[in-house]
Structure formats: structure tokens, C-alpha cells
């Protein structure tokens, strides 16, 4: 007993002395670890974001200093026809691409979610476009969309005789054509996300459903899909952010044409800022784009959350 007490006493003393040491000496070590990243993030993330609010209320051409003009830029936006076209196009990209990116990759994931010979090879091939540069594949697809290119030839092969569409020079087809490239390039990425989700689905539930005699379609609909709900939330948010920010594919394939029919908001911002050097106006549009992304993300988040609480 006595020995034990002495021991605990020593323990307490040691503990107290450690505490005192800690109080006396300021531990600078963690801050040394953090310093480089904090400096970089302050200068290249937080400072520009704060500046963005300011610049959006100014008239600013890079050579002369920024001049406060209040809501001028935002008023100008309301009357800028091209801004509304770009905004409308971004919404069209959203409406066409996001449903494709939510459904097709799920089909791909179900297709490759099995253990048969060579399945890894197929996964590697389906994911291949994801790792390649958008610039490179956009150049390739530009040639594929040629009036006598591979895509029209494939349509011919499927028995459509009038397939000599000039996809990228036609006002009606250019935007869906660019969307197709985006979906093709990103499909493998979302496939892997779904695949990870599918592998977490409870095996017992599937077995139980099989024993109850449920068909494969019913198992997919009633067992897999409800359990994939959190994965859907992830894919919807990522696909939304990705499509509203589309830039490179459009820049390379059409440059926004024909007649602004493929112009997206990011591309218009780029042109205003770095071709016309109208920094203030471009920043104001950037703020609007940010607001749109925030609203879309919050809606998606609420929807997926709301669904969960019902369950």
C-alpha cells in the first residue's frame, strides 16, 4: 500500500513538473511546421478572395489604378447580352452534362464491379481519358467532329444516311458536342467513385433479397440505389462544380463560337480579363459565378441530406 502511494505521488509530481514546463515555454514547433503553407495560402488564396470583393466594385484596367464605381459593374452585367448568353449556356452545359455524369458512370461501375478475368484492364481503359490532358483530347475530338470525321462515319454505320453534320460549326449542335466530350472524359472518374460505393453495399442485404426471390433489377433499385445515396450526393456536387466551370474544352474546340453558342461564363470572364483587360468587370462576373456555385452546392447538399432524414 505504502509503496503504491509513493509511486502515485511521484507520478503526480512528474505530471506537475511537465505541466509547469509547458506553461513556461511557448511551444513554437507546430507553427514552424505550418508557417510556409500559411504564408502561401494567405497570399494566394485569402488575399485574392478579399480583393475580389473590392475589385468587383471598381473600374480597373491593369495599367491604371482601380477606381471605385459602386454597383456599376453589376448594373452593366444586367444589360450585357453576352453575359446572359454565357450564363444561359453554362446552365445548358449543366442540364446536359450532369445527368450523363450521374447515370452513365453508374452503369459502367455495375458493369466492372465483378471478379472475372481481365476486369482490371477494362477499368484501366475506362479511366484512361481522365488522366489525359483536356487540351490533348479536345484537339482529338475536334477532328472526330469533322463533317467526314469518325463520329459522322459511326452514325453512317448505324444507318443514318444524313450524317454529315458540321458539329462544331453548327449553332445547334456545338454545345451538346462539347458536353459529350466532357462526359466522355470524366465518366471513368465517377465510375471509380461509384465502384467504391458499390463495394460498401451490405452483402447480407443482397443475399436476403436474393433469398426472397427479388429480380436483379429490383435488387439494383431497392437495395443498391438507396445505399448509394451518399455517393450520389458526392457525384452530383462534383459534377455540378465541374460543368459550371467548363473552360478548356470550349477554349480549344470552339473558342466560344459559333456566334457565342458555346460561350461559358468562365470563358467570358477569361476573355474580359485577359483579352480586353477589363479586370473590374471580369471580377464582378466571377463573384456572380461563385454565388451560383454556392447556391447549387447548398441545394444539392440539402437535397441529399433531406433524403437521408426521410430514410
Amino acid at each position: 500500500m505504502a509503496v503504491h502511494q509513493v509511486e502515485t505521488n511521484i507520478h503526480q509530481k512528474v505530471k506537475v513538473s511537465i505541466k509547469q514546463k509547458k506553461k513556461k515555454k511557448f511551444n513554437y514547433v507546430p507553427y514552424v511546421f505550418l508557417l510556409p503553407a500559411i504564408v502561401l495560402l494567405l497570399v494566394f488564396e485569402y488575399l485574392p478572395t478579399i480583393n475580389a470583393f473590392y475589385y468587383s466594385f471598381t473600374e480597373y484596367h491593369i495599367l491604371s489604378p482601380a477606381e471605385w464605381t459602386g454597383l456599376q459593374n453589376y448594373k452593366m452585367m444586367m444589360e450585357d447580352e453576352k453575359f446572359w448568353i454565357a450564363l444561359g449556356n453554362s446552365m445548358k452545359y449543366f442540364v446536359i452534362t450532369v445527368p450523363m455524369l450521374i447515370t452513365l458512370p453508374l452503369f459502367l461501375a455495375i458493369l466492372v464491379n465483378r471478379t472475372i478475368k481481365g476486369i482490371t484492364l477494362f477499368r484501366v481503359i475506362y479511366y484512361l481519358p481522365v488522366v489525359t490532358a483536356m487540351v490533348a483530347v479536345a484537339i482529338v475530338w475536334k477532328y472526330l467532329y469533322h463533317p467526314t470525321g469518325l463520329i459522322n462515319a459511326a452514325l453512317h454505320g448505324m444507318g443514318w444516311d444524313h450524317a454529315n453534320i458540321n458539329w462544331l460549326l453548327n449553332k445547334k449542335t456545338a454545345l451538346p458536342a462539347v458536353s459529350m466530350l466532357e462526359a466522355w472524359k470524366a465518366a471513368g472518374f465517377y465510375m471509380l467513385i461509384y465502384l467504391a460505393g458499390l463495394q460498401t453495399v451490405s452483402k447480407e442485404l443482397i443475399e436476403a433479397a436474393k433469398i426472397d426471390g427479388a429480380s436483379k433489377v429490383r435488387i439494383l433499385w431497392h437495395v443498391y440505389l438507396p445505399q448509394l445515396r451518399p455517393v450520389f450526393a458526392v457525384t452530383v456536387v462534383m459534377a455540378t462544380l465541374g460543368t459550371v466551370q467548363m473552360f478548356t474544352s470550349i477554349y480549344v474546340m470552339t473558342g466560344g463560337g459559333p456566334l457565342d453558342s458555346t460561350m461559358s461564363l468562365p470563358l467570358y470572364i477569361y476573355q474580359k480579363a485577359f483579352v480586353e483587360f477589363d479586370m473590374g468587370y471580369a471580377t464582378a462576373m466571377g463573384m456572380v459565378l461563385w454565388l451560383i456555385l454556392m447556391v447549387l452546392t447548398i441545394i444539392n447538399y440539402k437535397l441529399s441530406r433531406g433524403g437521408q432524414s426521410i430514410q
Binding site: 497570399v43 494566394f44 488564396e45 485569402y46 488575399l47 485574392p48 478572395t49 480583393n51 475580389a52 475589385y55 491593369i62 466551370q245 461564363l265 468562365p266 470572364i269 477569361y270 480579363a273 485577359f274 479586370m279 471580369a282 471580377t283 466571377g286 463573384m287 459565378l289 461563385w290 456555385l293
Partner: peptide, 14 residues
């Protein structure tokens, strides 16, 4: 969550 497009121009200016 800081927007790429929102800060693009100010980042260039910095």
C-alpha cells in the same frame, strides 16, 4: 471552397 473563378483575376493582379 474559395472559388477558382472568383479569385482568378485578383490572383493574377497579385
Amino acid at each position: 471552397f474559395l472559388p477558382e473563378e472568383g479569385k482568378l483575376v485578383p490572383l493574377y493582379i497579385i
